[in-house]
Every structure is written in C-alpha cells, then in structure tokens.
Nucleic acid binder design. Structure first.
Length: 732
DNA sequence: TTAACGCCTTTTTTT
DNA sequence: AAGGCGTTAA
C-alpha cells in the first residue's frame, strides 16, 4: 500500500482535503459525502507518506462506536502496518485516560469513579436533602443541566460572577459549589467534569508541553458538535493560543508548537446543542486557527436521488445554515415511502412485515426513533416475529438495574469508600436495613467526615445492643469483607461469578416475576462473559496501571470498573450476528444502512413537545435530516394516529416536518384501512354505517372520546376489521 | 422500623 | 411503564 493507492479512490474534492498541506484545515462535508473516509484516508496518507508516526496521531470522534469503526478502517487500509500509539477515541475517553494517568496532578484519588447521568441525578437529590431544600422548587433535573452546562462552558462555581440581585442564580451557584465540593471529597467525577478537569491539568506547563509534543496531528470528527471545552482542548493541544478568560489559561505560553489540525463537520448535522455543542465552532475555527483552509464536499455517495431530494427539501426549511446542496450520480431509486399507521402497534407490525419481505441481510436495516421509550413495542413485535434485532443505547447494558447492582458490589469491594455503591446495595437484596437506619449512618458519616462504609463500622461499635438491624448490618459488612478477601486471587469473571453466588441476588430478582428474573439473570451471565475478555481501551504504549501493590485480582477489578461507565456503547451482544439495528436518531449519526425506517413522525414526538421554539425546532429538523440521510436505498417514514404515552393512548398528528416535504416526493403506502380525525360524537355499537369505498358495515367498537373517537367497523364484504374516523362514514 | 401497596408524576436526545 | 412518595400492616 502506497500513497497513490490511498488516493485513487477519492474524488477531487476529497483528495484535496486528504492531501492538504495547510497547517489547519476544515472540511465541510455533507451527509454521505465521505466524511469519515476523508478522515481515515488522511491518517493513512500521513503515515504512508512518512509525514507522521502513528503515535503522533490523535483522532477524536463522538462515540466509541464511531471510534471503533475508524480504527477498523485504518487497520484495513494500512494492512498490517503498525498503528501502535495512535489515539483514536472520544473526547471523554481521552480525558478519562489523562486523568487516570495523572490522577495526582488532577487531585483525584487513584480509584476515582465516574458518575454517570443517573448517579449524578441521585447525587444531586441527596445534596438537596442535605441542604434542606425543597426539590419541588429546586428541580434536581434542572440543576443537573445547569451544573453540566456550566462545566461545558468551562465555568467553575467560584469563577462565576454573582450578581447579588439574582437570588435564584446565586442559590443555584451555591448548590453547584456544594456539589463540586461533594464530588471532590468523594472522588467522584461526572462526564462534564472529565473534560473540564482534563483541560485544567493540561494548563500545567509541563504536561502541556509533553502532550503538545506528542500529538502532532490532531483530527476531529463531527466538529459541529464540539462544545466550548472540547474546542479549547483541541486548541490547547494544537498550541494555538486561546481566547478563554485568563483564569483558565496560562498567560506565559512558552512557545507555540502549532500542531497540525484537521476538522471535519457539517452544520446541518449539529444535533447536540442541548449538550453544550456550538455549531459556531465551525466558523470560529477558521478565525482562531491561523491560515486555515476550508474544503467542501457535496457529492453524496450514499443515497439515491429520491432520498437525497427529500433531505434537501426538508433541510432547506432551516434558516440558520451555511448552505450546501447534496447531489449524487445515482439518479434512479425507489421512492421514499410514507406509512400512516392506525396506532403504534400497527406501525410496529408494518415495519416487521416489510422487514420480513426484505431479501438482504438484517444488519443492513435500521429502525430509528426519537425517544428510547419507543423501542419497547418495536422490540416486542420483532421478538414475536422471530426477527433478531439489536438495540443500541436505550436501556443500555451497563445501565440495567441488575448490572448496576453487581457493579456496585464490585465497586464497594474494590473501594469501600464508594458511597454511591454503598447506597445502592446496602439493602439490595432486602436485609431489613431501611431508610431510618441508613439516615443514622449518613448523619454519622457527615458528622465525622467519613465514608458511609466507615460510618457503618462506627455505628456497629457505638451501639452494642444486638438488634435485628445491627445483626443485618454486621452481616453485610462481613459479606463485603469476605468477598474482598476471596476476590483478590480470582480472575475478573470469577470474581463476578463469586459475587453472584454469594449475594442471593438471584432470589431477589426472582421475586419480581419468573420472566423478569430470568432475563435479569441472563444479563448477569452476560456480564461474566464480558469480564472474561475485557480489555481496557488504552493507548498501548502508555497503559495506566493501578498501583502494583494491589493484588492481581484487585488491579484487574479496578481497571474493569474504571472503564465500564464510559463504554456503554460497546454492546454485549454478538457483533457477528445478523440483526436489525434499533437506535435513536441521535445514535444513528455517522452510520448508514440500506433500508431505514424512521418512526413516530408525529407532532410533539418528533419534533418533540419540548422543542417547539424556533431554534430548537431547527435542531429537530436537522435530526430528521440526519435520519433521512442514513438510508442508502430504501426509506420508510412512519407516523400513527394514536400512540401510547405513559401507559395511556393519546391521539397523534402527523409531524409538521412531513408537510415540509413536497407530497409528490412521498409515496403513501396504500393499505386497506386508514385513519382520520373525527367529530365529537359517540357512536352506538352495532350502528349500521356506510363507507364510500368499502360499502356497508356495522360499528363493532369505538375508542377514544370527543374529537378523537375512532370506530372499529366490520364490513359485509371484506373480512377485515377496519378502524375509521367518524367523518369518513355515513350513518344509516 | 421496615416492607408492601396504591396513588401520583413524568425533560427526549448522550458522553 | 416506572420510579417516588405516603399510608398502612406487621
């Protein structure tokens, strides 16, 4: 493989970008124009031409999935050439790695744990309790967003100016400060903190010089979705001077190495602004990075023209865009289909039917939806029809209750100071240790400034009456100690097996019901499997180790725990299995499939009810755009007349986005029944009716009330039961 | 003091 | 549908 092999498959625009000699380059690349390709070929080109050594390469993507994909592609292209020391990962991954490597400089305990979203929320709730604040007024979820948002902007609680009139903000900042202190004293780090803390330690001249020297070539995918701190992180590593407030930067930057940067992005695919991402970073980049060159890719290689036209028409409704129009050479293609389903169940069945008729591989099919809750019914339906599927995200493996229970045990075994883990399992399975006892322990811990584990020891010593609770607590501490002993000599998977065997968790799950328990138990078994071939994601030549005085078992455990929270993407199920891919539109970004279903295209679901303001609406539209452009050949858009929400059926209306696409571009699926919206009468059962198309029939049933009543009608001719809007029928 | 049951509300998207 | 919360039974 030489340089010309790498270039020959590229078009002119792509080649120009790949071979740019500019120190800083920005590639604006529409969906399917070979964005990832350009990025990987750039890396391969740099290496084969001898301009770069693998260890000088630093490539960031947004998801672990995308990173794995890129690594795989590079490996294939370089074909056996050494990739040692190349960093390909996420911003969170690299930050995490830096903090593990330099935990002392970061003022963290060596065994610091990562707080995921849910744990963070719990933490905040507890904090509010501690501060005696009403969680009806200080909404935990809102505080969580507030705190994360500050961190994403690079703002520490102390660094924020307090305008004394705004008591609301003042208070929120106080809570933020308290939260920070709490995390610090417990050695907990949330997702946003990973980035911020990594950024902060890189301020230290020595580290900065080291990493600036090491990572000579910085490449960033999905640049439109970088937030302030990620942008600054890249800038810091590149050596280009920053314009953040001076508190965060080193004023006497010794020298500017000015590394090479290569950013790839598409403003039309910016879908993470709610997470602090700034599309403006694309243009900011051109201003901040000296003599940067920009490139543009508009030829699409992925989708057929009908699909592309739909995408172009839709996205044209956005005001805020840099503007580009995708085109393709493949003119022919199936039209984009539109299916108007009766209800969510009908939608799922329709999809399953279409999939059954698909001649190709299942893994080339994706079902995309706006909210994770939508996956449940789809899964159920696919299971019924014996179609194998795989769900990304959603109730992700590491987020399932049983997995978190086991992990909590492991965490407590590895590190008894882990209060979050303690809280989770102290009464799981039930040991008759209730809220009252727990509160006593908590206050003891608070009072003595120690962990819950230590407080428990104190508590046991302090009161010597052998009450039932005391005994339970004692047994619990013994259990953990015993496990710690036994695990120190075992392999990781054996350790987990041991925990499963010793803790009576099985009986606990079985109480929920036979099926539930079985499912949970299977998941537990999967975790044991996962542990067996666990390899931490590392830069090979710089693997961080946990201190060598730990036993082998413990070191393995610590490594495993350190990586589980960030690798939720690395799904457990067999990657070789041919199965349909189910995921949210957000997680579909960067992927492509031959056949795509986008479902739930309904007002208040997509666009979501919380995103109806103009600016958010544009982001929803971009999300839809991302969804459409995932499809190579076949695209189905689905919506339904009513949908189950919070367990109740509610009427649903077609998404406004569907109206934005010229109807000539959509081919409605003709089915024997269709739904419409109705007049506010209640029909009588058995009422004879007549339909202009289907003829005479009788009302068998009706659903909904008032305006949304629908009728189930049996027709004399057809054997089908049809659901109708009242307005479509003539009463006889 | 804990466990269980019924009633109530629910930020959608992810690292 | 599921978690949180208050009430009640043990």
């Amino acid at each position: 493989m030489d340089a010309s092999d790498i270039l020959h498959s590229l078009n002119q625009a792509q080649e120009a970008a790949v071979t740019t000699q500019s120190h800083h380059a920005l590639v604006l690349a529409g969906a399917g124009t070979g964005k990832t390709r350009v990025l990987t070929q750039r890396i391969c080109w740099l290496i084969t031409t001898g301009q770069a050594q693998p260890h000088q390469i630093f490539a960031v993507t947004f998801t672990n999935k995308a990173a794995a994909e890129m690594r795989h592609r590079i490996e294939t292209t370089l074909n056996g050439r050494n990739m040692k020391g190349m960093w390909i990962g996420t911003f969170h991954g690299i930050s995490h790695w830096l903090l593990r490597q330099h935990w002392e400089l970061a003022e963290l305990p060596e065994t610091f744990q990562i707080l995921d979203q849910e744990e963070q929320l719990r933490w905040i709730k507890q904090l509010l309790k501690k501060l005696k604040l009403d969680d009806k007024i200080w909404l935990p979820a809102q505080l969580q967003t507030f705190i994360n948002h500050q961190k994403e902007q690079g703002l520490r609680a102390q660094a924020l100016e307090v305008s004394s009139d705004d008591r609301w903000l003042t208070r929120k900042l106080a809570i933020y400060a308290e939260y920070e202190a709490d995390c610090k004293s417990r050695g907990m780090v949330d997702f946003a903190e990973l980035l911020l803390r990594a950024y902060e330690i890189l301020q230290q001249t020595q580290l900065q010089q080291h990493y600036q020297h090491r990572f000579r070539y910085l490449l960033v995918d999905e640049f439109q979705d970088t937030n302030v701190i990620q942008y600054e992180l890249i800038r810091l590593l590149s050596g280009v001077s920053s314009n953040l407030p001076s508190s965060l930067t080193d004023p006497k930057d010794p020298r500017s190495p000015d590394n090479y940067t290569f950013a790839v992005g598409d403003d039309d695919q910016s879908i993470y602004s709610w997470r602090g991402a700034k599309v403006a970073n694309l243009e900011q980049y051109l201003r901040d990075f000296p003599n940067s060159q920009s490139y543009r890719l508009e030829q699409n290689y992925r989708s057929t023209q009908p699909i592309l036209t739909v995408a172009n028409e839709l996205i044209a409704h956005n005001q805020q865009r840099l503007g580009k129009t995708l085109w393709t050479q493949s003119v022919n293609g199936s039209p984009v289909f539109l299916y108007d389903a009766n209800d969510d169940k009908d939608e799922a069945n329709f999809i399953a039917e279409k999939i059954s008729a698909w001649p190709g591989r299942l893994q080339d099919i994706a079902i995309l939806y706006r909210t994770t809750a939508q996956s449940r019914l789809l899964e159920e339906t696919l299971r019924q029809k014996k179609l194998s599927y795989r769900v990304y995200g959603g109730a992700r493996f590491y987020e399932r209750a049983e997995i978190r229970d086991i992990l909590a045990y492991l965490r407590l075994i590895a590190h008894s100071e882990d209060d979050a883990a303690f809280e989770r399992i102290i009464n799981t399975p039930r040991r008759s240790i209730g809220e009252r006892t727990l509160e006593k322990i908590r206050s003891l811990a608070r009072h003595h400034q120690v962990s819950l584990w230590q407080a428990t020891q104190k508590f046991l010593r302090q009161e010597d009456n052998q009450s039932k609770t005391q005994k339970s607590l004692h047994n619990f501490t013994q259990l953990i100690k015993q496990l710690e002993q036994e695990c120190s000599t075992l392999h990781l998977d054996q350790q987990i097996q041991k925990v499963l065997d010793t803790t009576k968790l099985k009986e606990h799950y079985d109480k929920e019901g036979v099926e539930e328990g079985q499912k949970r138990w299977e998941n537990c078994a999967e975790l044991v499997n996962a542990a067996r071939d666990f390899q931490p994601l590392l830069i090979e030549d710089l693997a961080p180790q946990f201190s060598s005085q730990d036993s082998a078992g413990k070191a393995a455990l610590l490594n495993f725990l350190a990586y589980t929270n960030l690798e939720s993407d690395t799904s457990r199920s067999d990657p070789n299995a041919d199965s349909i891919q189910l995921m949210t539109l957000h997680s579909a970004k960067g992927l492509e499939f031959s056949m795509v279903f986008i479902c739930g295209l309904e007002q208040n679901l997509f666009p979501h009810a919380n995103s109806l303001q103009e600016e958010k609406l544009e982001e929803e539209r971009r999300l839809f755009y991302v969804g459409i452009t995932r499809a190579r050949q076949i695209l189905y858009l689905c919506h339904c007349g009513r949908r189950r929400n919070y367990g109740r059926y509610e009427p649903a209306y077609p998404s406004r986005f569907l109206q934005e696409i010229p109807s000539a571009l959509l081919e409605p699926i003709k089915f024997t029944f269709k739904t419409h919206y109705l007049r506010p009468y209640l029909p009588k059962l058995g009422q004879p009716v007549k339909h202009p198309q289907f003829g005479k029939g009788t009302v068998l049933d009706h659903e909904g009330t008032g305006e949304y009543t629908r009728l189930l009608v049996q027709f004399a001719e057809g054997q089908k039961w049809l659901m109708f809007a009242y307005t479509d029928l003539e009463l006889l």
